[in-house]
Write a protein that binds this DNA or RNA. Structure first.
Length: 284
DNA sequence: GGTAGACCTGCCGC
DNA sequence: TGCGGCAGGTCTA
């Protein structure tokens, strides 16, 4: 099934820029899991083309459009954030790269896994989790697994997570699932929170600080003003954006994040992600 | 409000 | 081949 988009959709950049961790590339197709369905997708002159199983394409169409934020006007966003040469270069290099709207629970666990790690290891960790807990989905030659549920994580021992290679993050994953269950926290209502309310809710969990919370807000809760500050973004801000005195006075992640949100405005998250991907790919 | 260690594990470069 | 530094952070003292 084809879903039309008002702007070119750059699947390679969107799916492999570090906002999600378990898509597989088999050109021209990409395979991934959305809402417990195996999705096969490729770029199409009108937008994107996809197949799904077990749910039919017709029933999943809206979900896929939402996942890729296809109704969001990229040209408007570009004109908002394109205020310097670095952003401009990145937009030209990765034209059509979109910020996704992923499942918040999966996004939350994935980014807890990301702390002091690297993309390869994060992918391995999440793959191990889905292989241990998930249900297998088949399409063409691909086998992918559904993501573990909150209940799945609550029910198993922390040592199993450690044996899967998650290290010190295991206790955070476990305690987050436990807290959500015990306090009957409704993840589905998170999308109704404003940025600050969402941030407060997320950093309440052990293992989620300012950076990871902003990733979850940006990549799953539709908060395009969110501005995750990691090692890369901190370096970019300090080297290219901050004045000498700002470099001195802005010490914490949160203060750098506030600077970024103020400087780049309501689509700061887009500016952040384009800069992040640009500098990461340049420095490989 | 700000800082130094500790924390798991496996890439990656020398 | 083997080894040490380091990675999309966060917590605690």
């Amino acid at each position: 099934m084809i879903i039309s988009s008002n702007h070119y959709v750059n699947l390679e950049a969107t799916l492999f820029s570090g906002q999600c961790f378990r898509w597989i590339s088999d050109p021209p197709w990409f395979y991934g899991v959305i809402s417990n369905n195996l999705i096969k997708i490729r770029e199409h002159p009108k937008g994107i083309e996809f197949f799904s199983t077990p749910t039919s394409e017709t029933l999943l169409k809206d979900k896929i459009a939402e996942y890729f934020n296809l109704d969001e006007n990229l040209d408007d966003i570009y004109s908002c954030i394109n205020s310097d040469s670095r952003i401009n270069t990145s937009i030209h290099l990765f034209q059509g790269m979109r910020i996704l709207t992923q499942d918040p629970w999966e996004c939350l666990i994935s980014f807890i896994c990301s702390s002091a790690s690297n993309i390869k290891k994060i992918r391995r960790n999440i793959d191990s989790l889905t292989q241990y807990f998930g249900n297998k989905l088949y399409l063409d030659q691909q086998i992918l697994n559904t993501f573990p549920t909150i209940q799945n994580i609550v029910e198993i021992d922390e040592d199993i997570l450690r044996n899967l290679g998650l290290g010190y993050r295991s206790k955070y994953i476990k305690s987050t699932a436990q807290t959500i269950l015990n306090q009957k926290i409704k993840i589905r209502t998170w999308e109704n929170l404003n940025y600050q309310e969402g941030l407060d809710q997320l950093v309440y969990f052990k293992g989620i600080g300012d950076k990871i919370a902003n990733c979850i807000l940006l990549f799953s809760l539709n908060k395009k003003e969110a501005f995750p500050v990691d090692r890369w973004i901190e370096q970019i801000l300090r080297n290219y954006y901050l004045t000498k005195s700002e470099n001195k006075s802005l010490k914490t992640t949160a203060s750098l994040r506030l600077w970024g949100m103020n400087h780049f405005g309501k689509y700061a998250g887009y500016a952040n992600h384009y800069l992040f991907h640009y500098f990461r790919t340049q420095n490989k």
